[in-house]
């Protein structure tokens, strides 16, 4: 303890050298738990209660519970995906410029997909 170079303040904050502490780890697990519920619900609900036709899916998406669940699945899944791909990029891409560009793309792509997904769900929900 007396030999430690860490200050008492930094130990109390518990954020480590990267300054985010264990938030990445926790966020990945929390989204994983919700996805383990949302994805099977989404797949089974669509497979069992629709025939996959436009009219059937539109009717399904017109229910607030289904539209909200699909939007939650998209947001949770895309955030989980971004966290996972971030680790892959940090593991394998070592050139600083390439790594930065990949990490930027890994921020932009899930954000774009999330907005497009939620807007599409909203449009189908309102129009149904």
């Amino acid at each position: 303890m007396s030999n430690s170079l860490r200050t008492p303040l930094s130990r109390a904050r518990g954020l480590g050298s990267a300054k985010h502490g264990v938030s990445h780890f926790i966020h990945q697990r929390v989204t994983a738990i919700f996805l383990a519920l949302l994805l099977p619900w989404f797949a089974l609900s669509l497979l069992l209660s629709t025939d996959g036709s436009f009219d059937a899916i539109q009717h399904w998406m017109g229910h607030p519970f289904n539209a909200a669940g699909t939007a939650l699945l998209a947001l949770t899944g895309l955030y989980h995906m971004r966290l996972g791909m971030q680790v892959v990029i940090e593991d394998y891409i070592t050139t600083p410029l390439a790594r930065t560009l990949c990490l930027l793309a890994n921020t932009a792509i899930p954000a774009l997909l999330a907005l497009v997904a939620v807007l599409s769900i909203a449009k189908v929900f309102v129009g149904a």
Partner: peptide, 10 residues
């Protein structure tokens, strides 16, 4: 692909 499916639906 799933997001594309939602766009097609919309």
């Amino acid at each position: 692909i799933l997001t594309g499916w939602l766009v097609a639906l919309a």
